[in-house]
């Protein structure tokens, strides 16, 4: 329902950042998040970063899937 795309934070000036998705760099507001750092991945919706992506959870689908497998076998 709400288009939100992961971007990488490449530059921060106060609450305004430059974020990048595969070669496209644009301005993104950081007002909805605390302690964002350069290099973080954020979900961007309508020009605002709405959440940081947690890299440790990125493989959650695969892990959870393995869990189901083990559970059933």
């Amino acid at each position: 329902m709400c288009l939100a795309v992961p971007h990488k934070v490449v530059e921060i000036n106060g609450k305004e950042a430059i974020t990048e998705l595969g070669g496209i760099k644009k301005k993104t507001r950081l007002d909805l998040l605390e302690d964002v750092k350069v290099g973080d991945f954020v979900l961007v919706h309508a020009g605002f970063a709405i959440e940081k992506l947690n890299p440790e959870e990125a493989r959650e689908i695969l892990d959870a899937w393995r869990e189901i497998e083990e559970h059933q076998s």
């Binding site: 971007h7 998705l21 595969g22 496209i24 961007v44």
Partner: peptide, 12 residues
């Protein structure tokens, strides 16, 4: 090009 696809994805 990937830039075109990414641009489209960002802005819909």
């Amino acid at each position: 090009r990937k830039e075109v696809l990414n641009f489209c994805e960002i802005f819909g």
